[in-house]
């Protein structure tokens, strides 16, 4: 599903150069639930954004589903993200003035069809939000917000979900719930990459790797 070769990312912070990814090599098979663990600032989010076709590496390549992401134009990468990838963020990133259903439908860049609306409703019902469709994010608990974000990630039936600290703002029960939904996606043939600093996701993972200073230290 994913193959990263010599992946290097560098940033300048004031006068200092930071190596966020340092010649990183990574392969993820289709159907994997990969957890990337590491302390803050080790390059986890940078890795996720690079895998998500949003951050062109200084060096190296990212091939997802046989497609070299950064050989595509910006518009083609946007299309690729919409068709094949789903994202879940720590801060949920729900649009505050849209209701739950509309937030999920936002995953469709084109005007949502009736079928998409039905699928969004079904997903939200499956995620326990069937009675919250018309509510705004401000009226939801943190767990409900993250489940809305998971529904949004699942709407386009992606092959890969990239989750950045998806339970960073959740209590253990809600964390478990979110990982369970990601796991059920993985068990139906999807691939999941979660980057996190905690160990809560390990129980759901098929693989766990540890990162520090832009490098992979070990793989379980």
């Amino acid at each position: 599903m994913i193959r990263c070769t010599h992946l290097t990312q560098r940033f300048r912070v004031k006068d200092r150069e930071v190596r966020a990814l340092d010649n990183l090599e990574l392969s993820v098979a289709a159907g994997d639930f990969l957890v990337v663990r590491g302390p803050s600032g080790c390059g986890k989010t940078t890795l996720l954004l690079t895998l998500g076709a949003m951050l062109r590496p200084v060096n190296g390549s990212v091939v997802v589903r046989g497609q070299d992401l950064y050989a595509l134009s910006s518009a083609e990468r946007a299309q690729f993200r919409a068709r094949h990838l789903g994202f879940v963020f720590q801060m949920f990133h729900l649009v505050p003035y849209l209701n739950v259903l509309e937030n999920v439908l936002l995953a469709r860049p084109a005007p949502p069809s009736p079928a998409a609306r039905t699928r969004a409703r079904d997903l939200l019902t499956r995620l326990g939000l069937g009675d919250r469709l018309e509510h705004r994010p401000a009226a939801l608990s943190a767990g409900e917000r993250q489940r809305t974000a998971v529904a949004r990630a699942l709407l386009n039936e992606p092959e890969l979900i990239l989750a950045d600290e998806p339970t960073g703002n959740l209590d253990p029960d809600n964390s478990h719930e979110v990982f369970r939904h990601l796991q059920s996606f993985q068990q139906t043939g999807g691939t999941v990459v979660v980057v996190t600093h905690g160990a809560a996701a390990d129980a759901f993972a098929t693989r766990v790797i540890r990162m520090a200073a832009g490098r992979i230290l070990s793989a379980d």
Binding site: G52, A78, R81, F87, H93, V95, A107, P109
Partner: peptide
């Protein structure tokens, strides 16, 4: 900014 970043991440075109 966050909303724009999210829309871009979700694959919405710059034109939209």
């Amino acid at each position: 900014r966050t909303e724009i970043g999210l829309l871009r991440a979700l694959g919405h075109s710059p034109g939209r």
